[in-house]
Amino acid sequence: MTDPAVTLRLKDVSKTFGIVNVVDSISFDVKAGESVGLVGPNGAGKTTLFNCVCGQLQNDHGAVYFEDQPLNGMPTYRRARLGIGRTYQRTEVFPDMTVRNHLLVAERVHSGTGRLWKDLLNMSKPTKEEIEVSDRVMDLVGLMELADTPVAALGLGHCRLVELARALAGEPTLLLADEPSSGLDERETAAMSAVLRTVQRERGTAILLVEHDLEMVSEVVDRVVVMDLGSKVAEGTFDEVMANPAVRYAYLGESA
């Protein structure tokens, strides 16, 4: 099963809350540099699956592999350091910190060069490279003007961008984006799609995208996995999947 081209491999991943199989034996791969959409109606278990990949939840059965390394039992922060970046459906920003500090802290954690003794000797100022990286990322997502604004002062749309930028600052190999367009207007959504495409094409980052906005999904992803009630109901290109009667039934409630 060793395959350097596979970034993320899910094998029979299941998660149960009480007696409900919220994620039920899900298997699929995300190849290096590939962009995969994960869609499904509300409550399908998409966010739960993300949490199993990131380590916020431990899956009950099955296994998650990242670049051939089994992740089971590994805490969230170590998975992040391996190169899994993520954004959250309910934003998880650091309200007191400025946009730039979000990126700087992510970079510093990623490089692992922060030390308490360096702080005490006043040697922890952001390096030139760190500033450059944060500049580049903020430029990419369009947050340059807001660099020194505390995030508490920003709206939801900007917070989603901050989360994305923060994840990118850690230079992930795999980016998990959980409904990045929810709460954004049409123009912002279009901008978000453009950013995700650039990230994938120019940085070679693999993307797993959960999204209700099917237009955005069709623009961003190479392939789609459809979930309903915890199970995978279809997988294929966007058009293939949308033509699948099981998907239409699950997703739109239309009878097949």
Binding site: Q56, Y88, G170
Partner: peptide, 8 residues
């Protein structure tokens, strides 16, 4: 959650 998500 966000902090752990960036590797803290």
């Amino acid at each position: 959650t966000g902090a752990a998500g960036i590797g803290i």
